[in-house]
Design a binder for these strands. Structure first.
Lengths: 332, 332
DNA sequence: ATACATGATGGAATCGTTTCCATGAAGACG
DNA sequence: CGTCTTCATGGAAACGATTCCATCATGTAT
């Protein structure tokens, strides 16, 4: 394996010093003839500056770290896609890690990023504040996506977040169901998204409907746990007529559990899912969903992390869309 | 932002030379008392060796590059997940790029990896050989996943690949349909997976069924193109009784197109999809699928790229599984 | 007691880039 | 014509690790 061409080779071939080559290539000042000659030689030798040398000198790696709970999940896949799109435009590499929504894995992955000298991170955080201490202390630029970390630590609260407007999304969905006549509406949520459950409660209260705590249940992220929660809900409270699932895994569980228990959608129960996924349209009936702008969230987060080099920035809240398909009907 | 602690700090604090610290930390020889003291001091100062310095000195970056066509696609998401699992165990960062199945983007992303000094790459290649020239020349260790690149270039053909046994998978599916009495079976394929179409043809021939070229159609990756192909197929040849879709996007298109045209599955048409995705079970009826071991493919590819440092290795072919659900019935 | 092998140790070179600083040339102005 | 400013330029330091090599101490064999 032959050694790659370095800046020194270019300098020699062009008959100038390495400093001049560096300046020409990074847009510093240089005379027109020199600039042309250096560029010609660089092209001729197919020279690519090594990020290794640059990184060491500048004590940082250009890249962007991206931490998501599960890259297999459609929502996180779309977020990642948005990040990639933006990073690509900026020519920055993206280092991906999957935390499994586990604080310990998250901390470990942050450690890896720190070691690599990555100083810009986008994360869909697991929720625990502890892993982020080292990142903040090391001066990383962090942007949260889709979720934020709740903590008394000021530094952590100052981390900007790009979020979906969950409150409005959930409110719209609840209002829609209530408008159809439903009163016994359940919320099937996941841990790590307390905002959505809170919005659910608030909206019911605002509409003058008493909150029935039995109708608010949570799954623990895995498919099995989601299914158990959904199935338990339907069996325990056959009187409910509407369900809002707080994420695509929970929505999937609700569809399966309903089918298993021979509940017809939307005749027996109306169903709304938070998150629009390709299969929502394939379901029978097609699922009415609260669609968060997943890819936009990723893209905006990347913009934010690239632009806000050091200075503080406020987060962003992006609107969701209620997409009405066929899984909701009037109260039976 | 305070400067991070370097090996020099540790050396001073421990009263030894930097060389000794390096040796202790990377398992070289050192006396017991020195080793203990250095480790104690390193832990005390919370020292993490910077990958930047190491990479430069060793002229390579530890990480693994991962190039997939579309991280949003469930299959590629699962492949990525497998790679992440293995890389994580090895403590290696993963640099992700989405090529969009476009040779030019692929080449550009390979360029970024080269610049970063990444010398191990796992890719679900777009199919074009050109982008891989520079990678091979630079001495990168490449492993292909799920697909391979067909080329007269020996170096490229020598790249190991971790593949699903598509031939056996498609064969089983065709045999299953034929066993149910079907004779006019269509194949709905994507570009970039000629193996599957070939296996389809071969199996029909082996079973003594004439190949009807009109029943073999291709979509171009996007959802729209897949839908157009599926819809055209159903409209043009209403006499077909079975369809094999060569990927999850194509399967989705087939389900939608069939529904749009009021074709009942499986009464009017039997449907098998290559790739098992969460929604396959949610469909009405649940989809019978050829399930490739997506995550295993990623994991094995990562193992391969990590272990085969330089020397040649043969690829791996992993079995698929025909999962029979409810989308196939006897010929009408 | 001398010569030699062994093993621990630290100094210094090295990787490829950016950037500071000194130098020198050339133009501007009195 | 002399001085001052401006600009292009190249040498060298710096970044943080690894690793070669010389040194030194210790133990062993003759």
């Amino acid at each position: 394996m032959k050694t790659r061409t370095t800046i020194k080779d270019v300098a020699e071939a062009a008959g100038v010093g390495v400093a001049t080559v560096s300046r020409v290539l990074s847009g510093g000042s240089a005379s027109q003839p020199t600039r042309e000659r250096v560029l010609a030689v660089a092209a001729e030798l197919d020279y690519r500056p090594s990020a290794l040398g640059r990184n060491l000198r500048q004590r940082r790696t250009g890249g962007i770290g991206l931490l998501v709970p599960d890259i297999t999940d459609s929502f996180h896949g779309r977020v990642a896609d948005g990040v990639l799109a933006c990073a690509r435009a900026a020519g920055e590499p993206v280092i991906l890690g999957a935390t499994g929504d586990d604080a310990e894995s998250e901390a470990e992955l942050i450690g890896v990023l720190l070691e690599q000298g990555v100083e810009r991170v986008i994360a869909v955080p697991s929720g625990a504040p502890e892993p982020w201490g080292p990142a903040i202390r090391a001066g990383m630029t962090v942007v949260f996506a889709d979720r934020r970390v709740i903590s008394r630590d000021n530094a952590l609260s100052a981390v900007p977040a790009v979020l979906a407007d969950e409150r409005a999304g959930v409110r719209n969905a609840v209002e829609y169901l209530v408008g159809l006549g439903h009163r016994r509406i359940a919320y099937l949520g996941g841990v790590g998204q307390p905002q959505r459950a809170a919005a659910f409660r608030d909206t019911l209260t605002a509409l003058g409907i008493a909150i029935d705590e039995e109708l608010i249940v949570f799954g623990r992220g895995t498919r099995d746990s989601a299914y158990a929660a959904a199935s338990g809900l339907f069996q325990h409270r056959p009187d409910l007529t509407g369900v809002i699932a707080g994420g695509n895994v929970l929505g999937e569980a609700a569809v399966l559990a309903a089918r298993e228990l021979d509940l017809r959608v939307p005749r027996d129960v109306s169903l709304i899912m938070f998150d629009d996924v390709p299969w929502a349209e394939l379901c029978a009936p097609p699922l009415t969903v609260i669609a968060p702008p997943a890819q936009d969230i990723g893209y905006r987060a990347a913009e934010l992390v690239l632009r806000t080099a050091g200075r503080r920035t406020r987060g962003v809240r992006l609107p969701t869309e209620l997409i009405i398909r066929g899984s909701c009907g009037p109260r039976r």
